[in-house]
């Protein structure tokens, strides 16, 4: 009886040991999978942030091209458009419109450009600059003003009276809305 009891005791222990091994293996594999998932999700998070940054940069390019093609600013000669050229008189008129008649035109340009600061700077021969558009949000439309990313585009600035072209730069800074 005692012999039988000792063997049975050992067999029970052996079975427990085997069960313990199996449980340990399962836990180990689960830990590896969990670790891998955590690592992968962090890496994916980085990738998503990178993608977000790229889309924001593409937005900047889109907005810059939109501004560069605005008929309210572009040069024209006998009806033909001139690429990379802004008319100085149109710039002054546009600046006057956005600064003094914002109620009339603000909503239209905010829908097109969103929160942004757009400046044109003449470098040569007579340094001067104009802020043609500036919208940094309202109480109902909050904007993160520290999220600005700037693009610079060289443009020719035409004086339509003297027909002289100055060297200028279009500075476009886009901001993110706070959601």
């Amino acid at each position: 009886m005692r012999l039988f009891s000792d063997n049975k005791k050992f067999s029970n222990q052996k079975a427990q040991i085997q069960m313990g091994e199996t449980i340990f293996i399962v836990i180990f594999i689960i830990l590896i999978i969990v670790f891998g998932l955590v690592f992968f999700s962090k890496a994916e998070g980085e990738t998503i942030r990178d993608k977000q940054k790229q889309f924001r940069e593409l937005d900047t390019i889109t907005s810059a091209q939109y501004v560069a093609s605005l008929t309210e600013l572009k040069c024209s000669s006998y009806g033909a458009e001139d690429l990379s050229c802004f008319d100085k008189i149109k710039i002054k008129a546009f600046t006057n419109m956005t600064q003094n008649n914002w109620d009339l035109v603000g909503e239209y340009y905010v829908n097109k450009l969103g929160p942004a600061d757009i400046r044109i700077e003449e470098l040569y021969p007579n340094p001067q600059n104009w802020t043609i558009y500036n919208y940094t949000g309202t109480f109902d439309d909050p904007v993160n003003i520290y999220s600005g990313r700037q693009t610079q585009i060289p443009v020719a600035l035409l004086n339509p009276i003297t027909k002289e072209k100055a060297f200028g730069v279009l500075y476009l800074t886009l901001f993110d809305r706070i959601i």
């Binding site: 390019i61 990379s84 693009t151 585009i153 060289p154 020719a156 002289e164 072209k165 100055a166 060297f167």
Partner: peptide, 18 residues
């Protein structure tokens, strides 16, 4: 972005009045 910057810089430089 760099191609656009290079192209517009060269174009505006040659067109400017001086």
């Amino acid at each position: 972005a760099d191609n656009e910057l290079g192209a517009s810089y060269a174009s505006v430089f040659t067109k400017m009045s001086i």
